[in-house]
Amino acid sequence: MFSILQTIWLTFLHLFHKAETVQYPEEKPYLAPRYRGRIVLTRDSDMNERCVACNLCAAACPVDCISLQATEDESGRRYAEFFRINFSRCIFCGFCEEACPTYAIQLIPDTEMGEYDRQNLVYEKEHLLISGQGKYHNYNFYKQAGVDMGVKGKGEGEMEEKPIDVKSLMP
């Protein structure tokens, strides 16, 4: 008998507490910049696609929801011919971002991806690509790599000597 009254009293007291409920979507909760939400493909500082279609994100993906195909432009720059993420399968683990050697694929603090039709959760490259650098600025893979794919010439990279003249006899 006493415990019933105590419970009713406690419930009554709650009427005067501050409400915990947030009025979503009018009011949005704070999501940290490193929150693992929607996946985007970013661009480098020259506004070129960062993705070099290396397939590492797809390999790291535990649910195999990323597929892509590599191709190259006239200057030999490698990029993704198509890049598809099936968000109906994605578990937002962030492994793809960790695997990405070029900072191309990034998870952003956006979780509002609800759809009525599951087919709409299949994102192609045009849906994924944003016009910015995302979280990590000023990294351009092609300036670090040894290959000449139209971004810098041979030996013009940040940590590169000039190409060797094979016919020279100098040591």
Binding site: A58, A59, V63, D64, C65, R84, E124
Partner: peptide
């Protein structure tokens, strides 16, 4: 390590 199983045909049917 085969990747993209749940995505490669998703464009046609999810």
């Amino acid at each position: 390590r085969y990747s993209g199983r749940t995505s490669m045909n998703a464009k046609v049917a999810v």
